[in-house]
């Protein structure tokens, strides 16, 4: 699929996303599901941004959670409206991203995976530690101002559109970065680091930049979630929060803008749909199996499925 077609796809998806509330109406449950889905689309897209430089993280919950804590605290200290605090609070995640990125940029994939995984654990330990629990509320957590207090269909609809706008903004920013010289440098580093160096590209600089951007927008997603739920506890640094964006991005397709979007939507439908059949553990088994099958048979994710089907049909015709 050419990049151009993909871009059309995204525009189309945007139109659909804008129209979805017309179908679900003011149904608060479905709006809740959609809002959480949008937040995870932002989060998965931010996680996926890292893979453009050939890096991967198993501990993005650290950034998701730091963004949440940063924003919840700033909103309460400065009495800022949550929609503003989100962008400032995510700075905490960006700082952490810069720090961990500085350690990670020279490391090989396995080491990177371990360091990021461990970093989420270290951050959680710090947040609940005696030294910081005065600020973070320790295990009790802290309240976060809600995006749209009062709830109900109309408020959730406003929230949905606001988060949709933020989501579109984030993806447009990623798109702008990737089509610029920086994006070319990313690709060069990913394909062959030595050649990239020879061409005068400093991989460390670009990888660090990717880390910073990825961490910042993961923080934005985390902050949005926390303000949506109205409360934050250290459980936000859990392993599941680190693993979901990986599952979403791989399912949809790594190193594409539409991959995480498609993946998040598809997996959310599968996950919540299976629940109506009364499956509990079975759901995790199915997700695990799906992930393995996709990695082996559909390495470019669900968005490459139509291509693969066409290839298969062409082959059969011959």
């Amino acid at each position: 699929m050419s990049p151009k077609v993909r871009d059309y796809g995204l525009v189309l998806m945007l139109i659909v996303a804008g129209l979805v509330p017309l179908i679900v109406g003011l149904n608060p449950y479905l709006l809740t599901v959609l809002i959480l889905m949008l937040i995870f689309i932002i989060y998965s897209s931010a996680w996926n941004f890292l893979t453009y430089t050939g890096q991967g993280s198993l501990g993005h919950a650290a950034f998701f959670g730091l963004g949440g804590y940063g924003s919840a605290l700033i909103a309460s200290w400065l009495s800022l409206p949550p929609f503003a605090a989100v962008f400032i609070g995510a700075g905490a995640a960006a700082l952490a991203g810069l720090f961990i990125g500085a350690i990670c940029v020279r490391l090989k994939e396995w080491f990177l995976a371990m360091v990021t995984f461990g970093f989420a654990i270290i951050i959680q330990t710090l947040v609940v530690s005696r030294q910081f629990s005065g600020i973070t509320g320790g295990w009790d957590g802290i309240a976060a101002a809600r995006l749209m207090p009062g709830g109900g269909g109309t408020n959730l609809l406003i929230e949905y559109y606001a988060i949709l706008v933020i989501g579109v903004m984030v993806i447009v920013i990623f798109w702008l970065i990737l089509r610029s010289k920086t994006g070319l440098a990313f690709a060069a580093i990913r394909e062959n680091e030595l050649e990239a160096r020879a061409a005068g590209i400093n991989p460390v600089k670009y990888r660090l930049f990717a880390f910073l951007v990825s961490a910042y927008f993961s923080g934005v997603a985390g902050a949005l979630e926390v303000h949506h739920l109205g409360y934050i506890t250290p459980e936000i640094f859990g392993v599941d929060i680190s693993f979901w964006p990986i599952i979403y991005s791989i399912s949809g397709g790594l190193m594409t803008l539409s991959g995480p979007v498609v993946g998040t939507i598809a997996i959310t439908i599968v996950w919540d749909g299976l629940q109506t059949f009364g499956l509990t553990y079975g759901r995790f088994i199915i997700i695990g199996l799906l992930l393995i099958l996709i990695i082996i048979f559909l390495p470019k994710g669900l968005i490459s499925l139509p291509d693969r089907i066409r290839e298969y049909r062409d082959k059969r015709k011959k």
């Binding site: 699929m1 059309y8 796809g9 189309l12 679900v24 449950y29 939507i265 749909g273």
Partner: peptide
């Protein structure tokens, strides 16, 4: 282009069905 439509249509129908199920 068509293929993107197909994916989106499938996803969209899924979502609507999903919405329909819960509505019912």
């Amino acid at each position: 282009m068509k293929r993107v439509f197909v994916i989106l249509a499938v996803l969209f129908i899924g979502l609507v069905l999903f919405a329909g199920c819960t509505e019912n």
